Structure formats: C-alpha cells, structure tokens
Amino acid sequence: MTIVDAHCHVGKGDTLTGPWDVGRLDHYLRRADAAGITQTVLFSVFHGDYLTANRAVAKVVASRPERFIGFAFVHPARDAGRVAELVHEAVYQLGFRGLKVHRHDAALTPEIARAADRFGLPVLYDPMGQVAPLELFATEFPRVAFIVPHLGSFADDWAAQRAVIDLLVRLPNVYADTSGVRRFDLLVEAVRRAGPEKLIFGSDGPWLHPGLELAKIKALGLSRRDEQAVLGGTLLELLSPLGAGQPAAVGARAR
C-alpha cells in the first residue's frame, strides 16, 4: 500500500526561537520507514526568506525524488506582489507540487489563491483556528484544493475543528490533514459525515512521530479502499504533474 505523509518540515529557520525552527529528517525517516511510509511531502520551517528556504528544500527533494514531494512555503505579506514569480520558480525550476501557507506568518490572500489556480497547485493552509475565511476562498477559487492541517487547529480548538468538518461536507475543494488531531472522535466524525476521501494523512514531522500519527488512521477501521484514499490516494490525485501548470482535478472523489 502506498502511504504518503502530506505534512513534514525540513531545514533550519533563521530565528531559532523553538524546536519548530529546526526540521531534521534523520529521526523522522527512521520512524517513517519503520511505519511503512513510502513518500513524504516536505516544506520549510518558518523562515525570514522563503525563496532561500524553498531552494534548500528543493535540494533535499532532489536527493531522493522517489521519496520526497516538495511544497513551496509562501509568506502572504512579505511575498506580496511577487507570489506568481516565486511559484513559477517553485514549479518549473524546483519541481514543487503544492504550496504551504501559515497564518503564523499572515492570513491567506487572494494573490496566493490566484497563483495556485494558475499553476494547478493545492494549498496546505494552516488557519490557526480562524476557519471562516476558508469558505470564501474555496467558493471564489473552486479549482484550487485547500488542505487544512490539524482539522483547522493544532491547539485543539474544538469549535474550529467542527467548523472544518462542516466545510469538508459542503465544499468539494476543501480537505483536511490529520496531523496533530488529538480528539480521535473528530476524525471518526469527519469520515462519517464527509467521507474518507476528504481526509489526508499527515504527521507534522519531524516533531510528531509519524508512526503514532499513522496509528490513528489504522484505528479508524476503514476498508482497504477507503484507507488508501486517506493514506495517499486523494493527495496524489490532487497533485499536478510536474510543470503541467494546469488546474488540479478538485473534488473528483468527493461525495
């Protein structure tokens, strides 16, 4: 079975304010290999210059292209006005397959969504609990797949996570990754209401143990087909071919 971890950081940030500024892969890879994870999406840690950081990530991806998939980190405020230029390089020179945005930097912007639409890339956006604007983005950009990590809140904001489940049910281009979701019954509810094809396995490595995060998916007791959707099938469907620059096939499996 193909198992793709959709959420892993690599590299070193330039502030060193906490462990989230250092993404080392040595421990992660040992744990991921032991768990049977076959591919991993990599993107930078927080950084003051994502152009530089993305290029560093690309070197790691290029070292094992069969194992790693690169996503470009974009800063909504600092990169404003040059997002399309950055994404063009990310796709055509670095071979990246998606975008990562975090509200810790700044909130998602239409400029980023337009670039994702133009180049046919999914957007992994962490709203840090501020979920409501996602409905506007998903409606305004129906060809863009928006993947919400942690069901919307790494901080266990129950209201935000339930709101994301509602979006999964109603909007065909909104998905959620499972990393760091500690209230297991929310994953059960997401599968029941939105379908397993709207959940995407992620670990938030290297800080969270990929084997432990994977065990939550196994504990859902899904059929082999549904489990494969969560463990990589849906994500791989959302990824554009390298350099294709065509809109992603969004919602192909949505119920």
Rank of each mutant, 00 (worst) to 15 (best):
A159G: 13
R162V: 14
G202L: 07
L171T: 06
G95F: 11
R162I: 12
L124A: 04
V91P: 11
A116P: 13
F96E: 02
I165P: 10
K100W: 12
D156A: 15
A155W: 14
R103W: 09
R162A: 09
G195D: 05
P127A: 05
L171D: 05
L151V: 07
H209F: 04
V191S: 07
A90L: 07
H104D: 11
D204G: 07
A107G: 10
G205M: 03
D156K: 15
D156F: 15
Q161M: 13
D156M: 15
G98C: 02
A190E: 01
G195T: 07
A190D: 06
E140H: 14
L108I: 10
L108M: 10
M128R: 15
A176W: 05
D166A: 14
L187D: 00
T178L: 02
A176R: 08
R97C: 05
V91F: 09
R103V: 09
S179C: 12
P133M: 00
D117I: 06
P149Q: 02
I165Y: 08
V164M: 02
P133D: 01
A107L: 12
D105A: 15
H104G: 12
R193P: 09
L151E: 06
D185V: 13
E135Q: 15
R118K: 14
G120L: 11
L199A: 02
N173S: 08
E140W: 14
R193M: 08
L136A: 15
A138E: 00
V91G: 00
K198P: 14
V148D: 04
R97D: 04
V148R: 13
F184Y: 11
P110I: 00
Y175R: 00
D185Q: 12
L136H: 15
P142G: 03
R193C: 02
Y92F: 15
G98L: 03
S203D: 03
T178K: 08
D157F: 09
P133H: 05
P122A: 03
A163S: 14
F137T: 04
G95P: 13
R103F: 10
L124T: 07
A113Q: 01
F201W: 10
R183P: 04
A145H: 04
